[in-house]
Design a binder for these strands. Structure first.
Lengths: 336, 336
DNA sequence: GTTCTATACTAAAACGTTTTACCGTTCTCA
DNA sequence: TGAGAACGGTAAAACGTTTTAGTATAGAAC
């Protein structure tokens, strides 16, 4: 049976003082609370030697805070989210906070479940890449005045902190690049979920076509159902390329779609070259190592996570309610 | 100000019963504890309507368990760990458990910090890919009889649950494949950390050379310092390939080393072809999409995480101490 | 020699649960 | 008819902290 951990009571008994005194010292309030330096040192020594660590659960219960930040993403194994998670974890850790995370897999119900779960664990703040149907839950958090920062995906007309990139312009510039390269039939492969981020990627594509006097053809826009297998994605794209041999450029709205696309091309023995270009969202080693190298819209992970963490800590330490900020960074089009 | 969440007391008051009764009902012990079905239904209705969720922190404090599993890896943004994390999270969630994770970045001190932190949050079980210097901390956990499963990296002569692949044979087979392909100068690029997993990858390489009557040349084994930047890795490998033009095959002991290696080759305009082969540890999209495709030792993520979770839950639900199990799966050599 | 202030510390409540031990009724049946 | 069992609940302690509102003593000030 696991030996019980030391409690503040044990330390108090051993030192012949009250638990109040020990508590003050643990929390660095010894001097402020008029505890003699002799006692302070004695207790600190005992704590040190016995390796006493305060029980955070008890502390949470009493204080109503947990020093835990909840992170909700679609899929932690997606390199974009994993990268953000790593950076956020690191920065949070330095301020004494831990991350507890979950993937929603884009299931509407799961967001609610997760938020409830996090709430019941008294997490201090929420970082969320919201899936469809997350709106009401997030509104509730806001009503309860919890620190919340959304990222990657924005919920329109919800007055909430947000960090993301300018997807409209990123798409726009990608298409502009295609036009500059004399591409005539530019396809967009995107995903069939109704979130602003994804919609803007489509809007930017459309607007760029208009501005460059190119026709919009519905047949060149593919909306993949979310959650389909990689094989399905590949099959679907093979079909697309076969039935539309005129396509000479493709913009992929997510990194996994781009990967699927490149696999489809490989399978068909179709080359990316001077007559067929590709641009992917979210840069990665895959694209750098591909032959030929693939152009990409790079999201600045470091900048994004910096901003997220700053917003979170601003809110955590704020006395009164802060006005939500929307931080829009720009994606960098890397042309290869 | 955030409106306070409902407590069991509120529900009890509203229903005119004691909190004991409510607690019994919440925990499905209503019938067993002789609460009338009338009362049970009434309370359940109130709970439902008011959306009451028990405070897990209070529950943890009282029960000493948290329904949280701690996951400690080297770097959550490494696709291998991210993939495992995702799968484990999913399986744990289905049993009502959450994951709280952290990256050690291979800093010896950090493992201790993290374990202490997890302990003070009363996590119910530990899943750890141990970094160097983690041994004593893990021994302590074992003494305290906490459920622990190590994965990826094994600590020799520590009697503890472990799930991993047979690194010796994986390396051995990789080299064997090179020999079959008539390679004469086979290099190993590995990392300079002293963990069994990494050592076995080296041992398998050596043994395969011996068994095939090939000379072992220390100059063909590169141990990269852990934590060096990608650029440093690339530079170092460029040097290697330049100073050892005789090399005609390379086994990379980790996925990020392989990626660095491919970048080095790309930079040098050196091709992977019939006269120069590469095998990487941990398969990934990068290798499938590379031209030519890169052979890899695939670790069976699904199988690994299944085994981890099973071991964890076996321990959590066991009444008495279980004998630790070492589960060694085989890596699959994918020849491309 | 009283009052005031500073010093050095502590008792006890509170956070929201779970669980043990108990208390009244009403039935059952010898 | 009266003893035990079954029924339907409840009071209160405990988990390990933090924090408020003290207490007790010593010295300072007048």
């Amino acid at each position: 049976m696991s030996t019980k951990a030391l409690s503040i009571k044990d330390i108090a008994k051993k030192a012949n003082v009250s638990i109040t005194t020990v508590s003050f010292i643990i929390n660095g309030k010894g001097v402020e609370k008029n505890i003699s330096t002799a006692v302070i040192e004695r207790i600190e020594k005992i704590i040190q030697e016995d390796g006493y660590k305060p029980n955070q659960v008890a502390r949470s219960l009493r204080m109503g805070t947990s020093k835990i930040i909840g992170l909700i993403v679609e899929d932690i194994s997606n390199p974009f989210f994993a990268g953000i998670a790593r950076l956020i974890e690191d920065k949070a850790y330095k301020k004494g906070y831990k991350i507890i995370y979950s993937s929603t897999e884009n299931q509407p119900g799961k967001t609610k479940e997760l938020i409830d779960l996090f709430k019941s664990r008294q997490v201090d703040a929420y970082i969320i890449a919201p899936a469809e149907g997350a709106r009401i839950e997030i509104e509730k958090l806001l009503l309860e005045n919890k620190p919340v920062v959304l990222f990657d995906r924005y919920l329109p007309d919800l007055n909430v902190n947000y960090v993301g990139i300018d997807n409209f312009n990123a798409s726009y510039n990608a298409v502009k690049q295609f036009v500059k390269d004399k591409r005539k039939n530019i396809a967009l492969v995107t995903v069939d979920i109704d979130v602003e981020q994804i919609n803007h990627r489509l809007d930017g594509y459309k607007q760029a076509l208009i501005d460059h006097q190119m026709p919009f053809s519905a047949g060149l826009v593919i909306k993949m159902p979310f959650g389909q297998t990689k094989e399905e994605t590949i099959d679907r794209l093979v079909q697309l390329f076969k039935s539309h041999p005129e396509i000479d450029a493709v913009l992929f709205a997510t990194n996994y779609l781009a990967i699927g696309g490149l696999m489809a091309l490989k399978q068909m023995n179709k080359m990316v070259n001077e007559r067929f270009s590709v641009i992917a969202y979210d840069d990665g080693d895959v694209f750098k190592l591909h032959t030929p190298q693939i152009s990409a819209v790079e999201q600045p992970l470091d900048e994004i996570s910096d901003n997220i963490i700053n917003l979170i800590f601003q809110q955590i330490s704020a006395k009164e309610q802060l006005a939500p900020q929307q931080i829009i960074l720009s994606g960098r089009l890397i042309i290869r």
